[in-house]
Computed example of a mutant assay.
Amino acid sequence: MLQKTYKIGEIASLTGLKPFVLRYWETEFPQLLPVRTKKGQRAYTEEHLALVNTIKTLLYEEKLTIDGARRRLAESDRDAGVLRRVYDELAAIRRMLDA
């Protein structure tokens, strides 16, 4: 199944941001790296859209600096990795108990 993608103008419209802001954020947030089409256009996914909204919240509502938002996202990524490992370990224990 193909994942829905959005052009930069669509993301800008959905988030209320200007395309130049999105292009700038791509340089500041390594997680925000849209795929490029054969013609070189940016193709954002649903995950990118969620990330853009998260960055917007961190910067505009929580009033973090770019560096602060970058650190917060890195912490979130680390936390998600830890939770994934815990989940995997618990699933393995459950399989052992079921066996």
Rank of each mutant, 00 (worst) to 15 (best):
T15G: 06
T45Q: 07
A80Q: 13
V52K: 01
L90W: 13
S13N: 12
A99N: 13
G16L: 02
I93K: 10
V21T: 12
K63C: 10
V82Y: 12
D77P: 00
S13I: 00
E89D: 11
E75H: 09
M1F: 13
I66G: 01
G9L: 03
A91S: 15
L33H: 15
A74R: 13
R42M: 02
E46I: 02
V35L: 14
A50W: 05
E46V: 04
T5D: 01
I8G: 06
G16T: 06
K38P: 01
R95K: 15
L51T: 12
A43V: 03
L32D: 08
R71K: 07
A74H: 09
P19C: 06
I55A: 02
V21M: 05
Y44N: 02
V21S: 03
L51V: 03
R71I: 10
L59D: 02
L97F: 11
Q3F: 07
L59K: 03
F20K: 07
I66A: 08
E89Y: 14
K18E: 14
P34W: 14
E10P: 01
S13G: 03
E46Y: 01
Q3R: 12
S76G: 07
Q41W: 13
A80I: 10
T65N: 14
R78Y: 09
E75R: 09
I93R: 14
V52P: 01
T57I: 00
L83K: 14
L97I: 11
A69C: 05
A69Q: 02
Y6W: 15
G68C: 03
E10K: 13
A91W: 14
R70D: 06
A69V: 06
A43N: 13
S13E: 15
S76Y: 12
E46Q: 09
R85V: 10
L33N: 15
V35D: 13
A80C: 05
T27V: 07
K7E: 11
R95V: 10
Q31M: 12
D77S: 11
Y44L: 03
A99E: 14
G40N: 11
K7M: 06
E61G: 00
R95E: 15
D79I: 10
E26R: 03
Q3H: 11
P34C: 08
T57K: 07
W25C: 05
P34A: 07
R70N: 06
T37M: 02
R42H: 09
T54H: 08
A69M: 08
E26A: 02
T37P: 00
